[in-house]
């Protein structure tokens, strides 16, 4: 599942030419978003542990930890989404295409990127409309904190926008690079885990 070794992801070197900057921007955004997500997961652990402490030691449970924790979780999931495409970490069945000739592998990867890109654009479009509705209606969650709903909705649009960009960048690079090599994500993770330094 999650790993950093290039599976179906980027190959040897980047495409030359004017696109280079755009492509690097997409990569950079993906990496930055994933880093922010890493900070968030740590923050979630700490605030929830604090909640238990507050309840038992101070007998004063907080009103905000569950809402803030859940919202951060949504942010981190969607922020890290593009990076998981970039690193080839998504779960897929590679049994059939793994051994196919290079042309087929390229076509399969192209199809994947088109579907992901297409769905992401649709998601951004539909969700933006829904977010505007939430915001203008002043929708809030019916919890103790009553957080405005758009706060947990915005990352979904941002995440799919990054993903659409990343899919486009990978699609542009597809013909310029050697055909992608599909190691099943499971195998890749297994190798990654077994080589963990400890």
């Amino acid at each position: 599942m999650a790993h950093d070794t290039p599976g179906s992801g980027p190959g040897a070197q980047d495409a030359p030419g004017p696109w280079l900057r755009v492509l690097r921007l997409a990569d950079g955004l993906s990496i930055l978003a994933a880093r922010i997500a890493a900070v968030m997961i740590t923050v979630i652990a700490v605030i929830l542990a604090y909640e238990v402490l507050a309840r038992y030691v101070f007998r004063a449970p907080t009103r905000w930890t569950s809402d803030v924790g859940t919202t951060l979780m949504i942010w981190l999931t969607f922020l890290a989404m593009a990076q998981s495409l970039r690193s080839g970490g998504m779960i897929r069945i590679t049994a059939l295409i793994g051994n196919a000739p290079p042309g087929v592998r390229r076509a399969a990867q192209g199809f994947t990127l088109l579907v992901i890109g297409g769905f992401s654009v649709l998601a951004v479009w539909l969700c933006t409309g829904a977010l505007i509705e939430s915001y203008s209606m002043g929708r809030r969650q019916p919890t103790m904190l009553q957080m405005p709903e758009w706060i947990a909705e915005a990352p979904i649009i941002l995440g799919y926008a990054c993903l659409a960009l990343q899919a486009l960048a990978d699609l542009i690079r597809l013909p310029l690079r050697p055909a992608p090599i599909f190691v099943s994500s499971e195998e890749a993770e297994a190798r990654h885990l077994s080589k963990e330094p400890r």
Binding site: M137, G138, R140, Q141, P142, T143, Q146, E149
Partner: peptide, 8 residues
């Protein structure tokens, strides 16, 4: 009550 976030 599910509306009470938006409409207290």
């Amino acid at each position: 009550d599910e509306y009470s976030g938006t409409l207290p």
